[in-house]
Design a protein around this nucleic acid. Structure first.
Length: 182
DNA sequence: AGTGAGATGGCCT
DNA sequence: GGCCATCTCACTA
């Protein structure tokens, strides 16, 4: 069980999005440890990607942590009631990130129902991830991603358009969503 | 099985 | 004031 090092995150965002599939997301909160296998991600490619919060180099209070170096968490509130967890990639000169859209429970959860963490809002709700974790290092004690040797053959990785970004005009159909085929 | 609406709040213009 | 990188439940068929 190897914690992913900084060098994993400071790379091409699309590559990171694909290689995060099958990795273990681990969260420690109030004495409990939640562990889940990542099965769906989306790449957000920074200042030139209309779907990305940093499109046009938009530096706001919300996007602040996207301008950290790779290996940090970017967490934001959506629809007033849900949070979304992103993994910041590349360097601070390239505000890009990977949205963790879904995972499957491995340990620490009340159920191992595969639907439990299917969706970015549910994942954050069940893993107790909120704005408090925004900007947190993924080499921290409370939140990290690990490789337990689980292999995902590239032939099992399917790409498709990203979800819920109809406003992104010419970028809305880019195949930047990745998930593991069942 | 598939569609539609409501909840709800921080942040941008 | 209006928009969201969502989820759930109620409704149709």
């Amino acid at each position: 069980m190897k914690i992913l090092p900084l060098s994993f995150y400071v790379r091409d965002t699309k590559k990171v999005a694909i290689e995060l599939l099958g990795k273990l997301l681990v969260r420690k909160y109030r004495g409990k440890t939640y562990c889940a296998r990542i099965v769906e991600t989306e790449a957000y490619l920074g200042v030139n990607d209309r779907a990305c919060h940093t499109f046009g180099d938009k530096r706001t209070k919300r996007t602040r942590s996207m301008y950290l170096d790779g290996g940090h968490a970017y967490v934001y509130l959506i629809y007033g009631m849900y949070h979304c967890l992103n993994v910041v990639t590349r360097t601070r000169e390239h505000p890009e990130a990977v949205l963790i859209r879904a995972a499957e429970p491995v340990s620490g959860f009340k159920t191992i129902d595969k639907k439990l963490l299917a969706g970015p809002g549910k994942l954050c709700r069940e893993m107790k991830i909120t704005k408090k974790e925004d900007g947190l290092s993924l080499l921290s004690e409370r939140l990290w991603i690990a490789d337990d040797g689980f292999k995902v053959p590239r032939s099992q990785v399917k790409s498709s358009p990203r979800i819920g970004i109809d406003y992104a005009k010419e970028h809305k159909d880019l195949p930047l969503r990745f998930h593991i085929l069942v």
